[in-house]
Amino acid sequence: MTVLVYGGSGSGKSAYAEQTACKLAGDGPLYYLATMRVYGAEGREKVKRHRRMRAGKGFRTLECGDGLTPVLRETGGTAVLLECLSNLTANLMFPGDAEEPKTAAAVAAEITEQVLLLAERAAHLVVVTNNVFEDGNVYDSGTMEYIRALSGVNRNLAERADIVVEIVAGIPVFLKGAGL
């Protein structure tokens, strides 16, 4: 089973995704794939808050900020929560000062392939992604390309997911499939 959890900032999508992953895992192993590159106090605070939320729920955390390939073997046959595609997309698109940013199409294809492989090998996969699409602003070309890349990943995965759910003020609104 693959579940895609979508929502804006502060919508409660992490909490919903955790609950869903725990339900799907049952008594089996449960992995949390973290993607955030931590900068500064705010980043550390966010990591702390998410760790507190996950505490005692049986998640094993693996750092996947640079891609999912290294963890495919370990997470095979388990329940996996991947949080989140917006970070992963940013990390792969803007890898460092020295390298040129990749195109939206290339990044979308790369992440889609990795996530589908993860989904195929895992028993269950819950993926968190962000709605960054509705502020109507025009940004610099790099950010516009990022928006297109994340949109591409979301659309590709939504097509393949069993359940796609938008979280609004903590409430699940099902876009595809139904609640567990």
Partner: peptide, 8 residues
């Protein structure tokens, strides 16, 4: 208003 559905 919903204010969280844009670029961070």
């Amino acid at each position: 208003d919903e204010v969280g559905c844009g670029i961070v």
